[in-house]
Each structure stands twice: as C-alpha cells, then as structure tokens.
C-alpha cells in the first residue's frame, strides 16, 4: 500500500499536533514551581531574589521536555522528514 504525499503531510500535521501535547507536563511543573516560589517568598520575603533566580532556573530546566515536543512538531511541519 502506498500513500500519496498529501496523506503523509496530513498525518504529519496530526503528529505535530499530538507532539505539542508534551506542553502539558512543563505547564503543570512550572505552575507548581511558581506556586512554591510564591509560598517561599511569603515565608521569607528577604530571600526574594535568591528564590526568584532558583525558581526561574528550575522552570527553564523543566521547560526542556516541552521544547522537545515542540521541536518534533517543528520538524514534522517544516522539515517534513516523512514526505
């Protein structure tokens, strides 16, 4: 069975859509980190800048997995490896 180009392209678009579902995880993770950061600032307002930088660092690291999903979606849409 062979598929024509349009079919493969459509499937790639669906795959790209599925790939960016990976964004859910980092969203939840960053939210949790931000919440705990806010709680920490509430407990110890003096350490605000320290907490801020630690939180941003952690969030940026947590973001990586979501970005991998995004990257897969980009590859499927723009580089079109399957067509």
């Amino acid at each position: 069975m062979d598929f024509n180009e349009n079919f493969v392209l459509g499937c790639s678009a669906i795959g790209a859509g599925l790939a960016v579902i990976a964004g859910i995880g980092p969203g939840v993770g960053q939210g949790i980190a931000a919440g705990h950061g806010a709680a920490a600032v509430g407990r110890n307002p003096g350490a605000r800048s320290e907490i801020m930088s630690t939180m941003l660092l952690g969030q940026a690291v947590a973001e990586t997995t979501g970005l991998y999903g995004l990257l897969v979606a980009m590859l499927l849409l723009f580089v079109k490896p399957l067509v």
Partner: peptide
C-alpha cells in the same frame, strides 16, 4: 545537547 537544544528551541519558537 540538552543545554544547546533548550536555548535553540526557545529562540526558534519565539522567532516562528
């Protein structure tokens, strides 16, 4: 790899 992909993907997504 993860260090460079993080920076790359963030800036690329903004650009796109």
């Amino acid at each position: 790899i993860s260090l460079s992909l993080r920076l790359f993907a963030n800036v690329l997504s903004g650009t796109i």
